[in-house]
Structure formats: C-alpha cells, structure tokens
Design a protein around this nucleic acid. Sequence first.
DNA 1: TATAGTGTAATAGTTAAATAGAACACTATG
DNA 2: CATAGTGTTCTATTTAACTATTACACTATA
Lengths: 124, 124
Amino acid sequence: MKFDDKVPIYYQIKNQLYHEMITGELEPGDKLPAVRQLAVDMTVNVNTIQRALGEMITEGVIESQRGKGNFVTMDHERITQLKEELITEQLERVYQQLHALDLSDEDIIASLEHFIKQRGEQHV
Amino acid sequence: MKFDDKVPIYYQIKNQLYHEMITGELEPGDKLPAVRQLAVDMTVNVNTIQRALGEMITEGVIESQRGKGNFVTMDHERITQLKEELITEQLERVYQQLHALDLSDEDIIASLEHFIKQRGEQHV
DNA sequence: TATAGTGTAATAGTTAAATAGAACACTATG
DNA sequence: CATAGTGTTCTATTTAACTATTACACTATA
C-alpha cells in the first residue's frame, strides 16, 4: 500500500478501514483479516496495525476478541454516524483551506463544479 | 500559532506563507520578516523556519539575499500559478476522499452546497 | 491435549522532525 | 570600521513513528 509520508501510517490505515466499513466492503459483524495478515497486505509492521486498531477499538468502531479476531461493530448507527463525521471533516477542511486562499462561498462551489466537470471530460 | 500535529510543522509554515502570498498580505517583492522574527511569531525554532523557506526558495517562490532578507518573488505569474496549484490540490484531495466514501460526483457537489448553506445559517 | 490461528505486550533499534545553541557570512549604516 | 541586522550552517539532543523480534494469552479443533 502506498502511503503519504506527510501523515502517520497508522492514521492512514484507520482511514482505509473506515472507508471499507462505509462502502460496505466491511459490514457490521464482519471479521477483519488477522493482524498479521493486514500487516502483510499493507506492507507494514504488526505494531503499526495494532496501533490503528487500538484507536478504533477505543472509538467503539471495532471490537476485539482475543484468540478469535477483530470484528466490525454490530452498531449500524455508529457507522453511519462515522460516515457523517468523515464527510463533514473533509468538507470543513477544504472549505477552510479554499477560504484561506481568498475564495468566496460561491467561488468554492464553482471551482469544485468546474473541477469535477473537467475531470469527467478527461476520463472519457 | 496552532499546528496540526499530524503533519510536519515546516510543511504547515509553507502553507501559511503561501496563503499570505495569495491573499495579497505578501506582495511580489515584499520582504518577509526576519527568520528569527518569524520563529518568534510562529513559536517555532529558526531551523524549522529555515527548512520551510529553503524549500520555497527551491520552488522559486521566495528569493533569499544574504544579509538583506527573504523576498517574495517578483514573478506575479509564479504566484497565480501557485494559487491554481493549491486550489487544484485541495479539490483533488477532497474529491478522492469523498469518492472513497462512496459519494457520487453529484453527491459531492450537493454535500458541499449543503455544508456551505448550513454554515451560512449558523454564522448569522 | 497438542497445535495452529488469533490478539496483546514488551523490548530494542532506526529514522525524520523539531529543538537548542553556537558560529559564520554578508549588508547597511552611524 | 565597528556594530546591528540579516541569512546560513553545523552539531547535539529529544521525541514520535515505525520496524523487528520475541514472548505471552486465548480460542478452536484435529
């Protein structure tokens, strides 16, 4: 897996797993791959996996069962809530950044529309 | 200055200075505060400032004159180009992230519009 | 009950980022 | 020409993130 060396790997792993939970790749109750397997898949050390999972357990998104495995929480609500949080987080950040670059609310929306439109044309 | 401990400080300093150049707070030819002064202002070590400036010099955005100071490039074009780069970078990132969260192009635009609208209501 | 598969924990070593502090090089100016 | 204000460089130290390795604890099952 390719990581952005500007932010901690364990943090990017969390995001990766969040995404899988939100897109439904991982569903409530699903068992995650074994930590050692995840480590191999992501070409990363077990401890780094453990650190990411540890935080997610604290957040109540993953439940750990010693000897069995790690499981996605059965709490559907927690996951939709998570999705909302992640989306808002992204929007908040891009808004702040573009605002700091002197773009008005309208500019921000227009530039995003323009970006997506252009992108669509490129990817035909 | 408050920093996000998830990304290197020198990197955040670069962004801060970029923003000032783009909003016009810093204009082409302007002299930047002395490195030691910047260090005080940003409550950061001189070496960290130096690292940020060093990269910006390499990028041709800042010109250094030993004994005199650091100056914003006179090349207006370089700055507008920089602005475009930063905006696109932000849009690219938020697009990727929200797309990974299973939002369609339309969803992404709609959620941004919704976010900005809501935000406007909150900040009355 | 032995064994394989799991999570958990601990220790030690490496690296990048940041700090602290000092010294050096150049410029402007009283 | 001395001095203050600049940028530049270097060394040493600390800290967080990551890696490597080993050991331990629990579960399922042949």
